[in-house]
């Protein structure tokens, strides 16, 4: 079966906001693949990540609303204090169940459900972070033939998250943010 990127899921923690901004800022407003982003933040920090991103990227940035349909040209940000899951019908489900890896939203939850919904058509990128969240989800995606990318630990502001992923997922591709950006552009249908 030919791989065709249908969703891009991005996870990060400490340093992840900065890294994801660097990656997303060159993508055109017409970018053809929906992007879902799970970034850890303080649990009761209600401040809107949407605003942080809006000014810096051409794509529409929005906080996930439950049962919303995935659309191209959008970056969907996980809301504070909810897990974000993807359904096969390309909608979002939210979940307030137990923390995973001390986190809600947890990257593993979103990554796993993305692979269940999109199989090998999933592209996952794990960025800088001071947590091990995301590794298990990345492995899950790799086992289903998806594309898995880890930010170069040398570039990452905190390398715990990338190093944990590299150790757990031997087949992952290691790239710096410039290469990740170029890769994402290469997936875009012009």
């Amino acid at each position: 079966m030919k791989k065709e990127a249908k969703v891009i899921v991005i996870g990060g923690s400490w340093g992840g906001i900065k890294a994801s901004q660097a990656i997303l800022k060159q993508l055109p407003a017409s970018y053809s693949i929906p992007i879902v982003m799970v970034l850890h933040r303080l649990r009761h920090f209600d401040g809107n990540l949407q605003i942080v991103f809006e000014k810096r990227v051409a794509l529409q940035v929005t906080e996930v609303e439950e049962k919303e349909q995935l659309k191209p040209g959008y970056v969907y940000v996980a809301p504070s204090n909810y897990h974000v899951l993807l359904e096969k019908d390309q909608t979002f489900s939210l979940d307030v169940s137990e923390l995973e890896n001390y986190s809600r939203p947890a990257i593993d939850v979103t990554f796993t459900s993305a692979a269940d919904a999109f199989g090998s058509n999933t592209v996952a990128i794990l960025l800088s972070g001071a947590s091990k969240d995301g590794s298990a989800g990345l492995k899950y995606i790799a086992e289903r033939g998806g594309t898995v990318i880890v930010q170069d630990p040398q570039e990452a502001e905190v390398d715990t998250m990338p190093l944990a992923a590299i150790a757990l997922v031997p087949g992952c591709q290691i790239m710096n943010s410039e290469r990740i950006q170029a890769f994402l552009l290469s997936l875009h249908d012009h």
Binding site: L85, L86, E87, K88, S93, D95, S97, T112, S113, D116
Partner: peptide, 9 residues
């Protein structure tokens, strides 16, 4: 019930 969550539970 939304399936993604059911699978996870």
């Amino acid at each position: 019930y939304a399936r993604a969550s059911v699978y996870r539970r």
